[in-house]
Computed example of a mutant assay.
Amino acid sequence: MGERFFLYDDIVQTRTRFVSFMGDKQRFDLAIIQSDRYYGKHLVLDIQGGRFAIIGQDDLDEPGYLEDVYKLDEEDAGELREFLYEVI
């Protein structure tokens, strides 16, 4: 293997919140990561589902965004959206 070419290799301080809550039909286990990256948006990891997205207020307002990223139905996405509005 030749010399490794890095596009970037940064170490940054983050603030991570681990939260679990029960919706009407499903449990949400999330890690919400804040850093100076991603233009003020948060990295939201669905720990059980193995999915993640970089989310800001504008993304929460985008119809169908959470449904698509986290493979949720409209009701479950609504519960997640309501929670994320409170913390993002």
Score class of each variant (00 low, 15 high):
R37F: 12
Y70K: 04
D36S: 11
I33W: 04
Y8F: 11
L43V: 02
R27P: 06
Y70E: 04
V12L: 15
K41Y: 06
G78V: 03
L7C: 04
S20V: 14
Q26S: 14
A77K: 00
L72M: 08
G23F: 09
M22N: 14
Q13Y: 10
P63L: 00
Q26M: 15
I54M: 09
D73L: 01
Q48P: 03
G49N: 01
Q26P: 07
R15I: 12
F5R: 12
G50W: 00
Y39W: 09
F28A: 06
G40T: 04
A77M: 00
Q26L: 14
L30D: 08
A77Y: 00
L80H: 05
E74Q: 06
I32E: 05
R17P: 04
R17C: 10
L30W: 10
Q57C: 04
E82W: 08
I47E: 08
Y70M: 02
S20K: 12
D46P: 00
E82K: 15
H42A: 09
L7F: 09
D29K: 12
I55S: 00
L30F: 10
E79H: 01
I33L: 13
G40C: 02
K25S: 13
R27T: 14
D36Q: 08
S20C: 09
D24F: 14
R27W: 11
G78M: 01
F5G: 04
D29P: 07
L7T: 06
L72E: 01
Y8C: 09
E75Y: 07
F18L: 11
F52A: 15
R15S: 11
I54F: 08
L66Y: 01
A77C: 00
D29S: 12
